[in-house]
Nucleic acid binder design. Structure first.
Length: 493
RNA sequence: GCGGGAAUAGCUCAGCGGUAGAGCGCCAGCCUUCCAAGCUGGGGGUCGCGGGUUCGAAUCCCGUUUCCCGCUCCA
């Protein structure tokens, strides 16, 4: 499938809109429409349920986006979260200035005659004190002066824009967890290992955003900081390494549980040169997006870097008292950090299918029922029959408190089904003449309705009185195939 | 930020100096007893934005914004 087809569907069906579109759009930010916000909330709810509520060793947190500016000094983001870039004027290649310093370079020194020198990596010219000026790739082009990109958005706390009030929109939710480590520890009486989870917006002034909602400047993270005692071992392995491996496997399984096929997921270990300034080891969970394998979630061993830094900058002790060893330790932390928007995109890409049904193209989102924005659509077969419409609307009202249920009567039944297919509604409930009886013939209604399965397009016929119970079983995961034999469809065609 | 491509109806696109179009979708009506059927009617476009050339610009020129593909970066 192509990203274009998905962008188009997302807009047409109210999943994702470009931000500020009526003003010509604004770069690298997107809005989630009425159906998009449902999917996104579903992703966050499931992540929270599976990673916080179902585990005895996890608690949640919701820290503010604006924090004390020193947080970002301590975290290293003020100093390290920058990429000095230089461009070659001739071949137009772009380089990170710090990478250029890793190779020796040829230099034509203006301060000396007979002036070609080889200068060692990372050193300026001994004679003129210049750094590399020529492109390492094409060898001819002159390089621009390095330009600094700090990827953090600056802002000001309070009405006066002065340096004293300068702070940043957080570039990751993680720091909100680290600075609350001791608060949470005291309030919740926790024992290592334990984790703190948080979902929230983060902001990065990316040099190159793009690929739809894959890389945006405002995005939402689902982060866990899982604290372990580095002195402990599990199965003979240091605790941090054991839990790192565990989280990699758990998180991989989570994506699969909600519909991502194993062949479209992989773990990719970071090389030493690409590790972040805080990381001992990092592995990415990558998904096979339309534009290629790209990161869905990073799982890093941040060691004791963050707690140590914050202890140093704040002067507060951020340690854990090890009762067995009778000593204070600084916990190590394993960080599974996922992008909500990236998960959204991956689930959508994975679910999108174009199928051929009776010679017609059918677009269907085969979303996991828990992710689907709408759970049930109640449809009248004939909108001219008052009794059918009344019954259908009553059924919608009956189901709505339990599942997000919509009613639609604005087209023929086939079209209504296809509309629901396009947004991935797992089940449609149809009310027909047989349900309510036919006043013309005097035939009595059977008070049964049809449930139609999105993926197989098969139907079963269920008494209205059992509808809620049957839906309960379907959404609890009971398979269509096991349920269907008990509720044969209408004998009429 | 650099190079390349693009921007016309909700979507996909045609039109390339002379009155803004098609298909699909959407809305209303008729018809219709379960998978985008048919018929009739309807709403909807500052042709991304700004400037220029011209009697006349969606069309040619300049600028700009946004999107897509690369370089680079990350969740």
């Amino acid at each position: 499938m192509s990203m274009e087809a998905l962008v188009s569907l997302a807009k047409r069906r109210g999943l994702v809109f470009q931000s500020s579109e009526i003003y010509g759009g604004t770069g690298s930010v997107w809005d989630f429409g009425p159906l998009g916000v449902e999917v996104k909330n579903n992703i966050k709810r499931l992540w929270w349920r599976d990673n916080v509520h179902l585990r005895p060793d996890m608690v949640g947190l919701d820290a503010s986006i604006l924090m004390h500016p020193t947080v970002w000094k301590a975290s290293g983001h003020v100093d390290h979260f920058t990429d000095p870039m230089v461009d070659c004027r001739a071949c137009k290649r772009r380089f990170r200035a710090d990478h250029l310093d890793t190779v020796p370079w040829a230099h034509y020194c203006p301060a000396k005659a007979n002036n070609k020198f080889e200068v060692p990596a990372g050193e300026p010219c001994k004679h003129c004190d210049n750094r590399r000026t020529l492109c390492p790739e094409c060898g001819k082009g002159e390089l621009t002066a390095p330009r600094q990109f700090n990827l953090m958005f600056k802002t000001f706390m309070g009405p006066v824009e002065e340096d004293a009030s300068l702070t940043y929109l957080r570039p990751e939710t993680a720091q909100g967890i680290f600075v609350n480590f001791d608060n949470v520890l005291q309030a919740m009486r926790l024992r290592l290992p334990f984790g703190i989870a948080q979902i929230g917006k983060s902001f990065r002034n990316e040099i190159t955003p793009g690929n739809f909602i894959f890389r945006t400047r405002e995005f939402e993270q689902m982060e866990i900081e899982y604290f372990v005692n580095p002195k402990d071992t599990v199965n003979g392995v240091p605790a941090d390494e054991y839990w790192h491996e565990r989280w990699m496997q758990d998180r991989l399984a989570w994506y699969q549980r909600y519909g991502i096929r194993a062949e479209n997921l992989r773990l990719r270990e970071h090389g030493k040169d690409e590790l972040s300034h805080y990381s001992k080891r990092t592995a990415d969970i990558e998904y096979r997006f339309p534009m290629g394998w790209s990161e869905l979630e990073g799982i890093a061993n941040r060691t004791d870097f963050d707690l140590t830094q914050h202890a140093r900058f704040s002067g507060k002790s951020l340690t854990y008292f090890d009762e067995e060893r009778k000593e204070h330790v600084v916990p190590y932390v394993i960080e599974p950090s996922g992008g909500v928007d990236r998960a959204f995109l991956a689930f959508l890409v994975e679910a999108y299918r174009e199928e051929e049904v009776r010679g017609e193209k059918r677009v269907v989102l085969r979303l996991h029922p828990e992710l689907a924005p709408l759970k049930i659509a109640v449809l009248p077969l004939l909108k001219k029959r008052e009794k059918i419409v009344e019954t259908a609307q009553a059924i919608r009202a009956q189901l709505a408190p339990r599942w997000l249920t919509v009613y639609d009567d604005t087209a023929s039944i086939g079209r209504l089904y296809r509309r629901q297919d396009e947004v991935g509604t797992p089940y449609c409930v149809t009310v027909d003449v047989q349900t309510v009886g036919d006043p013309e013939t005097g035939e009595a209604g059977d008070q049964r309705v049809t449930i139609r399965d999105r993926d197989s397009m098969e139907q079963i016929r269920v008494p209205i009185g059992e509808l809620t119970a049957v839906c309960e079983r379907l959404f609890a995961g009971e398979s269509w195939a096991s349920l269907a034999p008990r509720y044969p469809p209408s004998l009429k065609p």
